[in-house]
Simulated assay, not measured.
Amino acid sequence: MAEPRLEVRRAVRAVLAEVGSAAPNHQTAPVVLVACSGGADSLALAAALAAEAPRAGVVAGGVVVDHGLQAGSAGRARTVGAVLARWGLDPVEVIHVRVGPGPGGPEGRARGARYAVLDAAAERHQAMGVLLGHTMDDQAETVLLGLARGAGARSLGGMAPRHGRYRRPLLRMAREVVRAAIPDEVDPWEDPHNADPAFTRSRVRHQVLPILEKELGPGVAAALARTGELLRADADVLDELAHQVRIDVTRPGGGLDVGELAGLPRAVRWRVLRAAAIDAGCPPTDLTAAHIEAVDALVTAWRGQKGIDLPGAIRIRRRTSRLVFEPSG
């Protein structure tokens, strides 16, 4: 096995080559940012980016987001920013946000705030890519959480290696390998939320996966991540088909044609219904397979039901031969 730092650098090198080949043909070097929390995975990623960017002809910067959820977080964020600058990353931004009350739980709200900050930073610096430090173990946890929600193949597919401007170079690498690649001169910060059993992902990481590894043997995380990758490939094809079909079944003036929907394979029909619900305002993370099954009954088992209420205060009604998505108020 290759030395961990070389493995991480090789993964980053491949992403930078992809970004470079997609860059417009002009004299300005493409900009790539790394999201760094100060945790082990993102520090290893940031160090690899700092080492590989000059030889790839890429301007490499970093963004540190302080969510303000723990005492002393602002000072830690500034320390992480100083480390990134010392490694040669430029620009480096340390941004402080406040995660207020609202729907989605504290994890979901913090994630939303973080991506809003990263999107804004990428726009300011016209970055072609933003690197995230998710590992194979993170992917395995995501697949298990998707299985628990019963949200279908898309959710079981986990995180995408590439989504828009975001790249996850370490998604096929074990967490222990990535963490062995941290430069010796830095001490990573461990978010206490990652060990707090009040958080679902923490319980999956520290209780569920270890039990599976003990009872089923080693390699469960790798198998879950590989399963997610295969399901994501299948889901990509079905989602594209459903996108085209949805255009065909949308009626003038809005709503979906019930007769056309009823003739579709369920795998395609459910995707059409889910996409329509999300576009109407349903939070994707709150929309489960049980919700879509209830909506599907308005198409395939119509007995005069008044409608289905979905997360996000959205109500689905059947009106003659159409399904209509509207605010529940």
Rank of each mutant, 00 (worst) to 15 (best):
H163Y: 13
R168C: 10
R168K: 13
L170E: 04
L170I: 00
L170S: 01
R172W: 03
M173T: 02
M173E: 04
A174L: 10
A174K: 13
E176T: 07
E176A: 09
E176N: 06
E176P: 01
V177G: 07
V177T: 13
V177M: 07
V178Q: 11
R179S: 14
R179F: 12
A180G: 08
I182S: 06
D184L: 15
E185L: 09
V186N: 09
D187K: 11
D187L: 09
D187I: 02
W189L: 01
W189R: 01
W189Q: 01
E190Y: 05
D191N: 10
P192Q: 08
P192E: 05
H193F: 15
H193Q: 15
H193K: 15
N194D: 11
A195H: 14
D196K: 07
D196F: 12
D196T: 04
D196C: 10
P197N: 03
P197F: 05
A198N: 04
A198P: 00
F199D: 10
R201F: 04
R201M: 08
S202L: 01
S202M: 04
S202H: 02
R203Y: 09
R203I: 00
R203S: 04
R203W: 11
R205N: 03
R205W: 07
H206R: 07
H206W: 08
H206I: 00
Q207V: 05
V208F: 08
P210L: 03
I211Q: 09
I211K: 06
K214A: 14
K214E: 14
K214P: 01
E215D: 09
E215V: 02
L216T: 03
L216P: 13
L216R: 11
G217N: 14
G217M: 13
G217C: 13
P218Y: 15
P218N: 15
V220G: 14
A222F: 15
A222D: 14
A223F: 14
A223G: 13
A225V: 01
A225N: 05
A225P: 00
R226Y: 07
